[in-house]
Amino acid sequence: MGVEQKLGNMGVVTVKLEELVNWSRTNAMWPMLFGLACCAIEMMATQASNYDLSRFGMELMRASPRQSDLMIVAGRVTRKMAPVLRRLYDQMPDPKWVISMGDCASCGGVFNNYAIVQGVDEVVPVDVYVAGCPPRPEALIHGIVTLYEKVKGERIKDWA
């Protein structure tokens, strides 16, 4: 396994640029260190010992939106928080993706009331929804792997 199998006698690998870029993006995705509520605790558990998110090239959570390319909206988004969330999304450089973690972020969850935005997709475009209240770490990892599949399918002409 590995790159040496692909190397010919000349030490050259031919690959589609599209595939190469997408491959590198999926293996070094930097999520933003951004937790809102209960789901953030499960997100922390996902990074910690038992689930170890760094297996997916993600151990580097960036506290600054300028350095991150994945936003995991972990928790309920309130009407007070929604503008801040949008500001953070706008500050992230392209290409960027959003995972909506948990029921509250995806659709309002159990809170259908005045305070909670009924789904973060009212504020930012969402790529992957992860269900659960809160989702298990395995569910979040599944969501991340699903996002990787999506990123691998992106075409050059779609790149911003």
Partner: peptide
């Protein structure tokens, strides 16, 4: 920034169902 309206929401549910809110 995380005001969820849990207290108000509990008023709209029966006692048994409102228990679900308390976890959060």
């Amino acid at each position: 920034f995380l005001h969820t309206g849990i207290e108000k929401n509990m008023e709209a549910k029966t006692y048994e169902k409102a228990a679900v809110m308390t976890d959060r």
